[in-house]
């Protein structure tokens, strides 16, 4: 069985879905049902009013919910948000997102290292969202990160795997799972990520802002599965010169040319 183990959880499905930007939460249960998605991400915010049906009611029982620390600008703020998330959901899993830059939403990798230390000491299992950097990612693992979540390109840009080579470095050198998060704009990007051997992908904008989020989620699900199977099958190396698929024989090289 091809399973992904992160800290003390096991996932069979390698598509993780972010719940932001949907025009209606009504899409979420149908997407989870049709893709078999086992983990979704959520944020912590002020409650709007008591009449609105809470997001939790749209997430089927058994689905793992990963709270993010979006909005945090330093490790201390991330810890506060994480504690609120834990009180809400009773889970120690936390996606560390520390973003001081509002234009490109670049994560503060140094502060993320500090947050991994701080949150680990408080019993959390950090999932750090980072700009892929091998040296700093190793520091995060030393500080207790249970996986690494490198960005493919900035959040919401749909530009795909602009950081592919750097993600490959992480995959080759880091023992904890690698989950590509952010920037994946279409299913082929997700397949490309899975083909290089990353363990899972997290998709939000590309599904939530599609004209048909349910169909798009299904397309992503198939792409993630195809990419994973291809990786496990073993993708042949690229070559500089051609190598015929139809071999020549003596009929072609001899008889035919008489």
């Amino acid at each position: 069985m091809d399973e992904l183990k992160i800290a003390d959880i096991t996932l069979k499905n390698r598509l993780i879905i972010g719940t932001g930007k949907f025009s209606s939460y009504e899409y979420i249960p149908e997407i989870i049902e049709k893709t078999g998605c086992e983990m979704v991400t959520v944020a912590v915010r002020r409650a709007k009013d008591g009449i609105q049906k809470p997001l939790k009611d749209y997430i089927p029982q058994g689905t793992k919910i990963l709270v993010n620390t979006s909005g945090a600008r330093n490790a201390e703020e991330a810890l506060k948000i994480a504690k609120i998330g834990r009180e809400l959901l009773g889970s120690n899993l936390i996606k560390i997102e520390i973003i001081p830059d509002t234009k490109y939403l670049m994560p503060d990798n140094m502060e993320v290292i500090r947050a991994c230390e701080l949150l680990s000491k408080e019993g959390f299992k950090p999932f750090p969202y980072i700009m892929p950097d091998l040296v700093l990612a190793k520091r995060m693992v030393e500080a207790g990160a249970v996986c690494i979540m490198p960005l493919g390109s900035p959040i919401g840009t749909n530009k795909g795997l602009l950081t592919k080579y750097f993600i490959e470095m992480l995959k080759n050198e880091i023992k904890v799972p690698i989950i590509v998060d952010a920037g994946i704009g279409k299913p082929s990007h997700a397949a490309e990520a899975m083909e290089i051997g990353v363990d899972a992908v997290l998709i939000n904008t590309a599904i939530a802002t599609s004209k048909n989020p349910v169909k798009m989620a299904i397309a992503f699900s198939k792409a993630v599965e195809a990419g994973r199977i291809a990786f496990l099958a073993g993708i042949p190396a690229e070559k500089i010169t051609a190598d015929p698929s139809s071999p020549l024989d003596e009929y072609l090289t001899g008889f035919l040319r008489k």
Partner: peptide, 25 residues
């Protein structure tokens, strides 16, 4: 903590935040 909410008394000018999970990536 949820278990303590019923025991807490609020004072003048206290600041309360009511938070929940919302859609997020």
């Amino acid at each position: 903590p949820k278990s303590k909410v019923n025991e807490v008394e609020v004072k003048e000018n206290d600041e309360i935040e009511i938070l929940t999970i919302m859609g997020g990536g």
